[in-house]
Design a protein around this nucleic acid. Structure first.
Length: 580
RNA sequence: GCGCCCGUAGCUCAGCUGGAUAGAGCAGUGGACUUCUAAUCCACAGGUCGCAGGUUCGAGUCCUGCCGGGCGCGCCA
């Protein structure tokens, strides 16, 4: 960061000699892919060549000659290619950045968020079945984004919205009731569009066998504060059967909701997801927030009545058509409830909100953002990130997942098959908007060939060396300038240069909402460590000072790898377990 | 028909605000363990970046049009 301004400043004087001033041109600095092109590069000569009517290379030469800079910071300035000016960083700079990394200053510099409160909502799956594996990707992204936000100094808040009101829940209750009645030998018609998954059959079986105990057990899982809203239905399944149909369905629905939310929460926990808030839709209705939001919208003048229904004029906000808020029979639409939810989210004091949605909801964005604007919320407050769907392949064929049909791979199955760490890592090596094919067979078979093990192994390997160093009596000292200054092997240099990128990688991953930059970075880091390990003998009794310097590099690498793995929620082992 | 996303090596995917010879993993071939963990390393092979135009010093990246695939276009949630 500092170094870039130093380079820009150094270019100022020679530019002024050519009659080019700061306001005339922006000096672009980039980091060449190819190390032989230096650490920083500028295309300024190429940009100005035409304007000045000069040859780019000639111009570059003139500029380079006029550059004066501290040789400890910038070792060399060269002209290359069609007219690039390349800068090579000096050893002193590298050492001071490594020290900043070790002392924590490098990560402190990027904590510029000022504790801005950001809400990140993800998964928010319907509480009608076990978590589907498509939620796993959202979980990995959402949780990592929260941790990235914390790293850059925001106050991130993870949230899960529970649609526990409305038709689906009724359908769920009716489905469970039908299964139960079936088992009791008093069959009722299975609801059209009901949930056909095996899990409801099993649940009905439990109810039959355990009766009141099943209800008590389910209720126990809800001692948690965030789940206080859910209370057990009165009595047991036998009692529910005797109620009139509507009440009966409601009791079964309540029970199913408790069970399913319990599963979902356990699954999340197992996947390493922690939600600060589980927000229940029913609360919006009970507290009249839906109505109040409706009133606010009416006041905004964007609501009109037609055919008995109340519509939001979302076309004024770039939507294709206007949308119904309140049906003719007085029931609010899902859209209105969702607006109420986000309105409340805003009122709860979040300065920014990010929602992770599936690609099937992208058409929903304009009306949602339009609604928020009509409610007086600034335009960019709500940010919607679309996560493309994962296609799961089995036997080379995509699995068709339909929750109502009960055909899907659950998140738990995924964890059983490939493990949570492997799954998370694979999801996080792809950018959010890429359509990802996840070959389950391949993931199962090759879980040991997975890149995640490559990185884990690097970490374990470092720990192993450090253990060995201690037991062999080497001084494992905290990194210092003298030691780090002794690192001169090309493999050491390559590793060190990558290490100091950590802060910028974290910042870019957070601001671009692209956690996959973390996995790219840590994979590359692991590769450079493995190369260093192969090329450089770390523990050498003949050369203690060198060994100690290398041990410092090992410690730094271990810390950075562990830090990044923590961000993506993957365990950093001190030793590898037995290979299968 | 309209809108959003994608199309890069045999497969799964990277490629940061346009930059120099397009990368990684897996799969393939050939090497490296009496030495700190070989779940590693090294080398080789593998490409009209879907196609065609355009913008410019320079395009995988930006614009337009096609082709191919996914998703959406409800008073469902």
């Amino acid at each position: 960061m500092m170094i870039e301004t130093a380079i820009r400043n150094a270019l100022k004087e020679p530019l002024e000699k050519l009659g080019i001033y700061e306001e005339d041109v922006e000096i672009e600095l980039e980091k060449p892919r190819d190390r032989s092109h230096g650490d920083y590069s500028t295309n300024i000569a190429l940009m100005l060549a035409k304007r000045l009517g000069r040859k780019p290379r000639e111009l570059a030469g003139e500029l380079a000659a006029g550059i004066e800079v501290d040789r400890d910071l910038i070792e060399s300035v060269e002209i290359a290619g069609p007219g690039f000016i390349n800068f090579r960083l000096g050893r002193g700079y590298l050492v001071s950045r490594l020290m900043a990394l070790h002392g924590g200053g490098a990560l402190e510099e990027i904590r510029t968020g000022g504790d801005k409160r950001i809400n990140v909502e993800f998964i928010s799956a319907n509480p009608t079945g076990p978590l589907n594996v498509v939620s796993a990707r959202a979980g990995a992204f959402g949780m990592t984004l929260c941790r990235l936000f914390e790293a850059v100094g925001f106050d991130a808040h993870s949230e899960y919205y529970v649609n526990d009101a409305g038709r689906q829940v009724t359908l769920l209750g009716a489905s469970l009731r039908a299964h139960y009645m079936q088992l009791r030998g008093r069959p009722v018609d299975f609801p059209e569009d009901g949930y056909k998954g095996r899990y409801l059959e099993i649940m009905a079986g439990e109810l039959l066998e355990q009766n009141s105990k099943a209800v008590e057990e389910a209720a126990k899982a809800f001692d948690n504060e965030s789940f206080q809203r859910i209370t057990a239905p009165k009595g047991n399944a036998e009692d529910w059967c005797e109620l009139d149909e509507e009440k009966s369905i409601r009791s079964f629905a309540k029970f199913a909701l408790m069970k399913i939310l319990g599963w979902q929460r356990e699954t999340c926990k197992r996947f390493g997801l922690r939600f600060d808030t589980w927000y229940f839709e029913s609360e919006l209705h009970e507290t009249k927030r839906v109505e109040r939001t409706f009133e606010s919208l009416k006041k905004s003048g964007s609501v009109f009545e037609e055919e008995g229904a109340h519509w939001f004029r979302s076309t004024e906000y770039g939507d294709e058509k206007d949308r119904v808020l309140m049906r003719a029979d007085g029931r609010p639409t899902y859209f209105l409830a969702d607006l109420a939810y986000h309105h409340h989210k805003f009122q709860r004091g979040f300065e920014h909100a990010i929602d992770y949605w599936g690609p099937d909801h992208h058409g929903y964005i304009p009306r949602m953002q339009g609604g928020m604007r009509a409610l007086g919320v600034q335009e960019n407050w709500l940010e919607v990130e679309i996560l493309q769907q994962v296609r799961f392949l089995e036997d080379g064929r995509p699995i068709n997942m339909a929750k109502r049909q009960g055909k899907f791979v659950s998140m738990d199955e995924l964890m059983d098959e490939v493990g949570a760490d492997v799954a998370k890592y694979i999801f996080l090596t792809r950018k959010p908007n890429s359509h990802l094919d996840f070959d389950l067979d391949l993931a199962k078979e090759q879980s040991n060939e997975n890149p995640v093990f490559y990185v884990k192994y690097a970490h374990a390997r470092i720990c192993s060396v450090l253990r060995k160093a201690e037991s062999d009596g080497y001084a494992v000292e905290a990194p210092d300038r003298d030691g780090l200054g002794r690192l001169d092997h090309v493999a050491e240099q390559n590793l060190a240069r990558e290490l100091i990128r950590l802060p910028e990688v974290v910042v870019s991953a957070a601001t671009a909402r692209e956690p996959h930059r973390l996995t790219s970075f840590v994979t590359e880091l692991a590769a450079l460590y493995h190369q260093f390990y192969t090329q450089c003998k770390i523990l050498d009794a003949e050369d203690r000072p060198r060994s100690e310097a290398r041990l410092m590099l090992c410690q730094l690498t271990r810390n950075v790898v562990a830090y990044v793995l923590e961000l993506i929620g993957v365990d950093a082992p001190e030793r590898m377990g037995e290979k299968e």
